[in-house]
Amino acid sequence: MPYKKAGKEFKIVDATLILMMVAPLLVAILCKVLFIPQSEGIEITGAHVYFTLNMPVSTLPISESQVNSAAVLISIFFLCLFITHGIRAKVYTKRAVIAEWAVEKVEGLVNENMGTYFAGFAPFIGAILLLSAFSSLISLVGLFAPTSDLNVVAGWAILVFMLITYYKLKCGPWYYVKGFMEPIPLMLPMNILGEVATPVSMTLRHYGNILSGTVISVLLAAALQAASNAIFGNLPGILQNFPLFRIGIPAVLSIYFDLFSGCLQAFIFAMLTMLYVSTAFPMEEYMKRKQIKEKAN
């Protein structure tokens, strides 16, 4: 196997890519330190607004979740560049193996759940998976997770809803309208409600899971602080405020709420996207119409 030692330029580019991967997170942490005032005690808050921009129609508040999700986006971009850096047709580096494994997994997932017609969806699904997972995992660095903001997840769900509608409209608008009148025209309001419920339920599922993890972690931290205050409250000096119980115990919950739940919700969001889009597309009708059109030509 032809293994060449990495040159100096290669290493410099590598180091730059790693730096660019970490830099957005550092910028986000810096923003948090600079803009958010130090709070007394433990409190549950939504995303803080850093500053507002004056736009023509209305003011545009730039909040914590926007900054953090932008940081995640840039970070993932450079992670992809780093993993595919110096890739060759013949795989002989570790990161090329990782990249190939990830791409193959996502393509396999898409082929398994959506069929070969939707094979082009693999990059989109992979992007959703990575973005959602990393947005939830960013809370491990102490930042506000963008997925625990309703607006961010609602944006993704609306994007998926647009995709669903696009594939439902593939057989013409009349077929789309007729789909709402099944099995009987009386079911029209129920079907419209069910259509609207799709993005709402997707949003609330993802957002509720991440938010509940955050809230429970904060409540537990507060309870442990109160417990250590009650026990060590009579000690003299600095020992009085020493949060002994807050060391380590919340980390056990964090394994479930931050690591497991975050990754699981990302997987479920991607899975539901695949299922909804592939079931929305009337494959048989579309193929029938295509054949008729080809015969006419």
């Binding site: 339920s201 609330l204 599922r205 509720g208 899971n209 938010l211 509940s212 699981l264 479920i268």
Partner: peptide, 11 residues
């Protein structure tokens, strides 16, 4: 995770 949804609405 799907069955959890209704509970999350309540939450």
């Amino acid at each position: 995770a799907l069955a959890e949804t209704t509970g999350l609405y309540a939450l």
